[in-house]
Design a protein around this nucleic acid. Sequence first.
DNA 1: CAGACTTTTCGATGGAACATCGAAACAGGC
DNA 2: GCCTGTTTCGATGTTCCATCGAAAAGTCTG
Lengths: 249, 249
Amino acid sequence: MHVHAQVTGDERASGGRYDRPVTSPATGPNPRRIGRPRSNSRPLVGDPTDEILAAASRLIGLLGVGGTAMSRIASEAGLKQSSLYYYFHRKEEIVAALVARANVVPLELARRITDDGGPAAVQIYRFVRADVVALCALPFDINEIHRIAARDPAGFAEYWTERATLEGLIEAWVRHGISDGHLRDVDPVLTAMTILSNDEGVQNWFRLGTAREPQAVGAAVADLVVGGLVAAPSRLDRVRRAADRIDFQ
Amino acid sequence: MHVHAQVTGDERASGGRYDRPVTSPATGPNPRRIGRPRSNSRPLVGDPTDEILAAASRLIGLLGVGGTAMSRIASEAGLKQSSLYYYFHRKEEIVAALVARANVVPLELARRITDDGGPAAVQIYRFVRADVVALCALPFDINEIHRIAARDPAGFAEYWTERATLEGLIEAWVRHGISDGHLRDVDPVLTAMTILSNDEGVQNWFRLGTAREPQAVGAAVADLVVGGLVAAPSRLDRVRRAADRIDFQ
DNA sequence: CAGACTTTTCGATGGAACATCGAAACAGGC
DNA sequence: GCCTGTTTCGATGTTCCATCGAAAAGTCTG
């Protein structure tokens, strides 16, 4: 029977290999692997799935999704083109796996900041500053991935769920800030959307070549966003100092 | 001699037909056109270049650049696939022509606002509000086009020049606002970049389906941006009223 | 330790899309 | 009528995504 028939729903979500072994992947010095040997004789370093994702990530950052051929990814991962389809059914699944990784960082960040508590303005400041830096550090442009995810809501369902969660956390900060009078009376939904858009948009232009350091860009954007939200501008300095105390010590 | 050999540098920049006739295109009731007739018998309505761009714009908005096949554009414009290449050498040239059109609106807007003069905060407020609306009204996602333009700086040289001009105009507003004390002491370059990123990022999320009206989104973003820039937050109300007086009367 | 089964890889192939080439089909001027 | 220039087409080449069946290894069972 052909291996494709063994695919279950779960692997689609995980974006990984068809039948992922429960045992850890080959890591020893002489990783005896089953299956037909590769035509090239290069030593096999780790989990092929990870190697594929690493190659894809690098290439997509360089050439974009459309400009990155499956054959190129395969060759950089030490495989032939058709062998890729053993690990990922379609090109989009590779993209989905990459976006799933990228999504973890901002979401973890937001959760940690929510757990830390503190004034809403400080929370938002901390988030924006770190989010911009994190997005700038990604090897590829998150906006391009967004666009692909938007055209295939079913295939990227997990992504959109996480995205909604993230937006919800930010909304909650904004709501708290408004109710305790520290923030202006803005639309929380629109504001959360704008904050995320802003981070991603800036990341885009940073990628296109700005001399600024990501840290500086992040701080500037955080200044602008929080400055636009706080009820009294004199608070901005205190907010910045509070954020620095938490994150830079 | 093949028609390709007749291409000059100019047509590349204009993104149009190989040898654009100086005479106006057929507009009469019975526009007798020279050249081989089309295989379909549909009546020919206007300039084929415009029809191609209209079809491409619609399809790209629907399916994205990668998802829009040249054969599809051709068929919607009443042509066979290979006939497109008489008007545009490559798919990217169609994209370049579209982006050239899209770029006109924000640049004109910024120039008019500069000519109008007035306080920097009002200028920025007016720009952001109108820019967001204009970007939301585009049939396609400007961010996708940006990315393609970024990967081919030579082919989109005109676009990048105009972009730099736009950024320069905004920078000048910010500089003026700082020097006369109405705006906080921010980095003008970074701020101009952030403002444009913000507009484009919000446009992106609006396109993905928000219940808000573009007008409302634009006003909210303008509030946030200008609120983050003005030295005294009490000024925000006055700025908004001043902008309303100019644009909504 | 032979043979069945599983895992991983490959080569061949089909189909879709971009792009090029040469020629066909018209109009207008000589 | 014939030549020239304009616009369109069909055929073709190449590249890329994706599928299929089989090959080449290891592992398990009797």
